[in-house]
Design a protein around this nucleic acid. Sequence first.
DNA 1: AAAGATGGCAACCGCCTTAGG
DNA 2: TCCTAAGGCGGTTGCCATCTT
Length: 278
Amino acid sequence: MGRSPCCDKSKVKRGTWSPEEDATLINYLNKHGTGGNWIALPQKAGLRRCGKSCRLRWLNYLRPDIKHGAFTQEEANIICSLYNRIGSRWSVIASQLPGRTDNDVKNYWNTKLKKKLMATHSVSIPPTCKSSIETATAASRTTTISDKATIFRASTNSLTTSPEPFLTDNTTGLVNANAISTVSYEPVNFTFPRFILEGSSNFSSVNNNCPYSLSHQNSSPFRPFALGIDENYGVNGITMDEYSCEVVSGIWSQDEAFGADSNNADLFSILQGVSQSH
DNA sequence: AAAGATGGCAACCGCCTTAGG
DNA sequence: TCCTAAGGCGGTTGCCATCTT
């Protein structure tokens, strides 16, 4: 049995809010506040809307402190910087931008920043990774970070079939996290590790003892990942253009190997072990 | 000028977390 | 401690405006 809906969808209006509805909601909230209960609010206010819809309309559009209009370059820089550090945690990013909502930031990222930066930052991924990831030519790489950072190298020939039943063969490049040492590594130098993967569910996990950032795509049981060794982590004031890292990449089967996303620390520990063994 | 493609963004969906009984 | 309902959040959808052919 599924979760019960928050309201009877056959009895509430959906779609774009009319000016009259906006005014009704604003008037009600100005007089009474939310009362700590959005679900009950529409009935009290005389609106034929779902409580969640009212909350969203208020928080994303009607609040008096909402900043409408185009994002500034400074805001764009903040978004890029934070996205790089923490991934798609839009509410956290938006909290650093007064007057902007998580929805604003998310839309701005998806419609403007992502495309803009994809166009300007080339990326390289091992050929064994079969996802539709943008590739760059070898000539586009530089070696400045390679000289300083530990470089992981392994031949693509070292890919092996896994004892796990959900693995595919070694021609696809799909590997299991349990056999992570067989993934193909390729030193890459690029400017913004978030863009090595397609998909909208990137996340990161960074702490002081593990200066790595991780991206993955979660729309498939087999998930391409990339691990950036961020030498600049913790250095204040870095810009996107200055941001560089080494990358290992491959396909990580997350569900079967580790369960929930929150366990990505396990992957980090494995990858750290790999780094130490190279 | 018209039709299709693309972009932008408001709104919805559904899962996860939290708070209170 | 458990259960339930509401809040919060990220991902996705769908509509409308604009652009391109």
